[in-house]
């Protein structure tokens, strides 16, 4: 059982950072709604507020790690240009997709959208975390502010969903390959 360094980084970007960020949304959205809903029962304890703050900060870190690893580590492998004369494009995902009309739109629409829309998420989520931590339960006094916080949190979720879904499809049609081989486990082949 082996994996290449490029595979490993792609998994870390998509599953380690991106998917974990997506998974964290359900908890964050419920909690943000709970503290900001009008007529919500008791005030959150200081410990609860600290925990929510830490949770949101962790989400912000995951969001930034996802976009930075995607843009500055994975993307250069994706857009690598094959040397003159190379006909096997398996190691050059962008060129591989563009080489056929059946797959070119996965790049022209899918990758182009993914690489830009994903950046909405960390910007939006940083604001959500900042406002939530700064105002805490007092956000109940600012109706329009909590509308924005919830709207931007949902927008971050949608943006991440778009980027993640296209990432999964792109990795199916033109996976990132290459790098050094890491042997995880040695089996007994027949």
């Amino acid at each position: 059982m082996e994996i290449t360094t490029h595979d490993l980084m792609t998994v870390l970007h998509g599953m380690g950072f991106g998917a974990l960020f997506m998974l964290a949304f359900s908890g964050a959205l419920v909690e943000l709604y709970r503290i900001s809903a009008p007529g919500a029962p008791p005030a959150m304890s200081a410990g609860g507020q600290t925990l929510l703050g830490l949770y949101l900060v962790a989400m912000v870190i995951l969001a930034w790690l996802t976009v930075f690893s995607g843009t500055y580590v994975i993307y250069p492998w994706y857009r690598a240009v094959p040397p003159e004369g190379v006909t096997d494009l398996a190691d050059y995902p962008r060129r591989l997709l563009l080489s056929s009309g059946k797959t070119s739109e996965w790049h022209n629409v899918g990758m182009e959208w993914k690489e830009h829309v994903g950046w909405l998420a960390p910007t939006a989520m940083t604001m959500v975390a900042y406002v939530t931590m700064k105002y805490g339960r007092a956000i109940i006094q600012h109706r329009n502010m909590r509308i924005s916080v919830l709207a931007f949190a949902v927008a971050a979720f949608v943006a991440t969903g778009i980027a993640g879904a296209f990432g999964a499809f792109l990795n199916k049609y033109a996976p990132i390959r290459g790098g050094d081989v890491i042997i995880l486990m040695q089996g007994e082949g027949t």
Partner: peptide
């Protein structure tokens, strides 16, 4: 506030600045 607790009232300016800046960034 309505549920009988005392909370600090912060002007909405800092929050508004963060929200509008996030919109500008997006």
């Amino acid at each position: 506030v309505e549920f009988g607790k005392i909370v600090e009232t912060i002007p909405n300016g800092p929050g508004a600045a963060a929200i509008l800046a996030a919109g500008i960034g997006c």
